[in-house]
Nucleic acid binder design. Structure first.
Lengths: 137, 137
DNA sequence: TTATAATACTACCTATGAGTAGTATATATG
DNA sequence: CATATATACTACTCATAGGTAGTATTATAA
């Protein structure tokens, strides 16, 4: 009942970058600041590029920068692209056929929480972060 | 961002048993009703016995029955014994040192949700379930 | 055009959650 | 006491998330 490490990393990285969005960030710098293992971060950055949040610039003086404005990126989008948001929206007890018309014993309790959870992620933009708070490990 | 399958199974099983709490349930019967794989369910039942929710009766005419009243079992206790509840209560971004005095950029948003989440699990007893709802796969 | 400094890719390794197989142990009942 | 029918235990297998190593590719700038 927590985000995958990869989602944590993705959020850390993009929130960190969103503080000064127009800058170009090298993998080296992000690794140093955010303490994510080098190779794993690089692979994740490639994924985030393919997902359209950032773009990578190869070659000397390369790095990563936003291709989409942080104002247009929801936390939901990030988590969804990394680990899939459907996981979160299934039945708490794992019943395939659970729904409002055929609810499990936990259904309504769980739907309430789940709705709030989704709401937070769907309504929070990368630009809404409180950048005065800690952004590094 | 979901419960482990093992937690799902534990909840399914105990909620199912709580509908008629004084009965003795065999692994065979639970496997059939709840569609959890035989050997895995048996191992889980042993764990739940060791955790003090149920007790096992070996030998012919054996099975499992509650040793603790469903009224005294919180969903929190079950999940905690199976996968550990601390996991849920860490920083969303995975920062070790994140706290209210040294919050990350997501801290307060996350604390609110997390509190509600904990509340549901801490305040719901096994006896509070709506047993008219679906309890089997 | 060559050296340098960046990202991309392929193929592994490792730990863990989930599931399975086989055997040992317990006990009620004929 | 023997047998049938339960659970308990040990040790595997399998899939996947996370992490690592080495090499290839790209592009700037001297």
């Amino acid at each position: 009942m927590k985000l995958s490490k990869t989602s944590e990393y993705a959020l850390r990285i993009l929130i960190y970058m969103a503080k000064v969005p127009d800058q170009l960030y090298t993998a080296k710098q992000l690794v140093k600041e955010l303490k994510v293992s080098d190779k794993y971060l690089r692979r994740l950055m490639t994924d985030l590029s393919k997902s359209g949040f950032i773009r990578s610039i190869q070659g000397r003086d390369g790095g990563y920068t936003f291709i989409k404005s942080p104002e247009d990126i929801l936390l939901y989008d990030i988590i969804d692209s990394v680990e899939g948001m459907e996981k979160m929206n299934g039945c708490l007890l794992g019943f395939e056929k659970c729904s409002c018309t055929n609810p499990c014993a936990m259904h309504y309790l769980w739907v309430d929480i789940r709705t709030d959870l989704n709401k937070v992620f769907r309504e929070t933009r990368l630009s809404d972060m409180d950048f005065n708070k800690i952004l590094r490990y």
